[in-house]
């Protein structure tokens, strides 16, 4: 068994690199675009700080529609768009586009929920001290929910590690694709088990790091 694994080790390393590449870009886009989007959703909710019910219904709807798409279908459906953005529809970079598109609304929703957990009374106290909306967002909402935001990042990393395994379908590679190609198609059960163990370890590391960060950031109890 060990021989088999050693033989494909270089390919495992390449696959891990591809997974890492997909995850980093997807997470970065999700956080950079999803955070403002989720914050906007929180702010324009009916009865919130900048209540805009109609706009909320519109954006909320779009977010739901994208989230409803099964990832595999989204991956295929937006091929023309992917080609437009990164110039190709196959390969690791091409998978990043659908991954990011599906991660943005997912993360935005997590952020919205996290912000909803911030005590409204604290926001009101800040308002009574003359804080403007920008100050409320940065100094109250993000500060009070920083542990929740770290938790949201952890959740999204784990679920998109799983999503990224579909990447093989368009030649994206990654560790999940490797497991399917060697373990499943070639009936090399030992390699499949080894790869799955590797993925389990990665998930454990992500989750443990996430939990640790959440605990460090949370001063509520």
């Amino acid at each position: 068994m060990l021989d088999n694994i050693i033989a494909v080790w270089p390919e495992i390393v390449t696959s891990l690199g591809q997974t890492f590449y997909m995850m980093v870009i997807t997470l970065a886009v999700a956080v950079l675009v999803g955070t403002p989007l989720g914050t906007l959703l929180y702010l324009i909710r009916p009865g919130s700080i900048i209540s805009a019910p109609r706009l909320y219904v519109a954006i909320d709807g779009i977010v739901n529609v994208i989230r409803s798409f099964p990832f595999l279908i989204l991956l295929i459906a937006i091929i023309p768009f992917t080609r437009l953005i990164v110039g190709t529809a196959i390969g690791t970079t091409a998978v990043v586009v659908p991954l990011a598109i599906s991660a943005i609304p997912e993360f935005a929703r997590l952020i919205e929920q996290t912000l909803l957990d911030v005590n409204r009374g604290i926001v009101e106290a800040a308002e009574s001290m003359g804080a403007n909306t920008r100050q409320i967002i940065w100094k109250v909402l993000f500060s009070e929910s920083r542990a929740g935001i770290a938790n949201a990042i952890t959740i999204i990393s784990v679920s998109f590690l799983s999503f990224s395994t579909v990447a093989g379908l368009v030649g994206g590679g990654g560790i999940g694709d490797f497991a399917i190609r060697y373990g499943y198609y070639r009936y090399q059960t030992d390699i499949m088990i080894a790869t799955v163990i590797l993925i389990v370890i990665i998930v454990q590391i992500l989750q443990t790091t996430g939990n640790f960060t959440v605990r460090r950031l949370n001063k509520k109890n």
Partner: peptide, 20 residues
């Protein structure tokens, strides 16, 4: 917002920022 600085307010449930 500027005027509110001269009107302090305190609350039943204190409303302190818990991460500060």
């Amino acid at each position: 917002l500027k005027r509110r600085l001269s009107l302090g307010m305190i609350f039943q449930h204190f409303n302190l920022l818990s991460n500060r």
